[in-house]
């Protein structure tokens, strides 16, 4: 089965149960290599349906302070692109089944070599790819390379997106569409924006792809709220912050269980 199909299947299974997907993010190499593997495993056991696996970049311009600090620490700890792929391979070997969507910025992938990256990523068990600074119009090489390797190309839409942008993203995206809940960067918010329902409906008219909402979600209540209107709930900063705390893995396990309960209803 290709990565695209594995992602489709996860959303189809959940839809049959009238549930939204719980989609946690974690940055590889944070707080340490070993701990980051344990964090993903803990989340896999606490109800995660699909992972976003962060490959650190030195200049994460779409990320807020929590993810910035984590990916920065990971790079200082020696985390490389190749090692992130190796870690995903190790997680697969350890029995983690959920789809992996690798999330990075364009430059590390460009430096690695776009075609080589797509092939190596697929071999390591990557099912989808998310690159915040690579909108569809600029993904001339990486998108075909991902298609070739069976990897889903996941693009973003934002509350500012025009109808034309929505159509273009809908035409290029596979797997799901990443709906940015707010104009802004990653990080927890005390309240989700009131126009989220409108935004989702606007996009819904153009695509039957699953719509997963991210940016700003940090607790069970918010996860449940989003699950009521979208197909997936993406949580990053809150989990990364938990992973960095004294008893990180246990904290992640607890928060992950709550968020999964919120998403699954």
């Amino acid at each position: 089965m290709s990565g695209v199909e594995r992602i489709q299947q996860v959303f189809a299974n959940l839809k049959a149960k009238k549930q939204a997907a719980f989609m946690p993010y974690h940055a590889m190499g944070y707080p340490t290599r070993q701990r980051s593997l344990e964090v993903v495993q803990a989340l896999a056991e606490s109800g995660a349906d699909l992972f976003e696996i962060g490959i650190p970049h030195s200049d994460p311009l779409a990320d807020g302070p929590v993810v910035q600090a984590a990916t920065d620490a990971a790079i200082r700890g020696g985390t490389t692109v190749a090692d992130c792929l190796a870690m995903m391979g190790e997680l697969r070997a350890a029995g983690v089944q959920q789809p992996f969507c690798a999330m990075s910025y364009y430059n590390p992938i460009l430096a690695y070599g776009e075609e080589r990256f797509a092939q190596d990523a697929a071999a390591a068990g990557v099912d989808g790819l998310i690159v915040p600074d690579l909108p569809p119009g600029e993904s001339m090489k990486l998108e075909p390379a991902c298609r070739e390797a069976g990897i889903a190309t996941i693009y973003f839409l934002a509350p500012t997106s025009t109808e034309a942008r929505i159509r273009s993203v809908a035409a290029h995206a596979t797997g799901f569409i990443y709906m940015v809940s707010v104009t802004g960067i990653t990080g927890e918010r005390s309240q989700l924006p009131s126009d989220l329902v409108d935004f989702i409906q606007r996009v819904r008219r153009h695509t039957s792809l699953p719509l997963a909402v991210g940016f700003g979600i940090g607790n069970r209540a918010q996860a449940a709220q989003v699950a009521g209107i979208a197909d997936g709930v993406i949580v990053g900063s809150a989990l990364v912050r938990a992973a960095g705390s004294a008893d990180g893995v246990a904290a992640v396990r607890q928060l992950g269980t709550e968020l999964a309960a919120g998403a699954h209803g």
Binding site: P135, Y155, T160, R165, V180
Partner: peptide, 13 residues
């Protein structure tokens, strides 16, 4: 080119 997050694409246009 335009290598920016989607949120900014309409602003660039």
């Amino acid at each position: 080119g335009k290598y920016v997050p989607e949120t900014l694409m309409p602003a660039l246009d």
